[in-house]
Nucleic acid binder design. Structure first.
Lengths: 145, 145
DNA sequence: CTTGGTGCAAATCGTTTGCACCGTC
DNA sequence: GACGGTGCAAACGATTTGCACCAAG
């Protein structure tokens, strides 16, 4: 899915996706997207809902949940589940992986080209077409160990 | 936590852990552990519950959930959340990572020493003490692409 | 004016918890 | 005996869904 047009902004990308799929552009989706892009870093569905609520109290939680799923389909966001049943979303702009402190829940981001490359290679060796991945390291951060 | 005694079997390891923590050895825990070790590969809490139920219908789901958490603490099992709110457990014997097919949900295991090594190094560079990790590749398997 | 979107509340679903009773240590 | 474990059912919390109404194409 999702043909990536590197230079297109999230908004354009969403519009394109909506148009292609015969879906509709709505105020809610635009507002939710704006709010989402505004919040840097990782974001829980519910955190985003609270932010959106501030700007427009009429928007319901279900709409935010639905929008977030849509963003993932449109390739604007990625979803991952860190802890028990909480889905964390983040913008797809720069890919990075995470180190999570088991004690203070701090999140440190990292990226490593060599790992990325090896992933591709391993996938290829198994005839697997790699779409996305998650790579989380759990342990204790410098402050907590 | 959990001092690893490589040669000890899961049962011994559990007993040791229970003894150290002043917890009790019960029939249920033993049966659940046996069933768990019997099932190779990945296992949902609920799948395990169903298996256990076959052998001993009186055991409740809560007991299985509680046992599984205990196994993780004891270092016998590892937990990860693949899809929405479903926790998947697996025996800790051999570490490996996963490729998950987005279409047929197939799980292919892989391991790569170089990636393991780089992880350690990256963690170290950030003063992070690595305890465990998860590395999942999502995409389409050879049969589904 | 047709079809998808929204808001609300009710429904799900996996998992957790409170409690009375039972089994280890 | 004392204290942890178990089973059951009720409680939970994040997410989903049914439905009547609204709005974009």
């Amino acid at each position: 899915m999702t043909v990536s047009t590197p230079s297109s902004s999230a908004k354009v990308r969403l519009d394109t996706y909506l148009a292609r799929q015969g879906l509709k552009h709505t105020r809610q989706r635009e507002l939710i997207l704006e709010t989402f892009m505004g919040q840097s870093g990782h974001l829980t569905s519910e955190q985003l809902y609270r932010e959106v609520e501030k700007r427009s109290p009429v928007i319901g939680a279900a709409t935010v949940y639905r929008a977030l799923k849509l963003f993932v389909e449109a390739g604007i966001a990625t979803a991952s589940q860190f802890r028990d049943g909480v889905t964390v979303y983040e913008t797809r702009r720069a890919h990075h992986d995470h180190m999570l402190c088991l004690r203070c829940d701090k999140v440190i981001e990292f990226e490593d080209d060599e790992i990325e490359r090896r992933q591709e290679r391993i996938a290829g060796e198994h005839g697997f077409e790699l779409v996305r991945h998650r790579h989380d390291l759990y342990g204790y951060c410098a402050d907590c160990r």
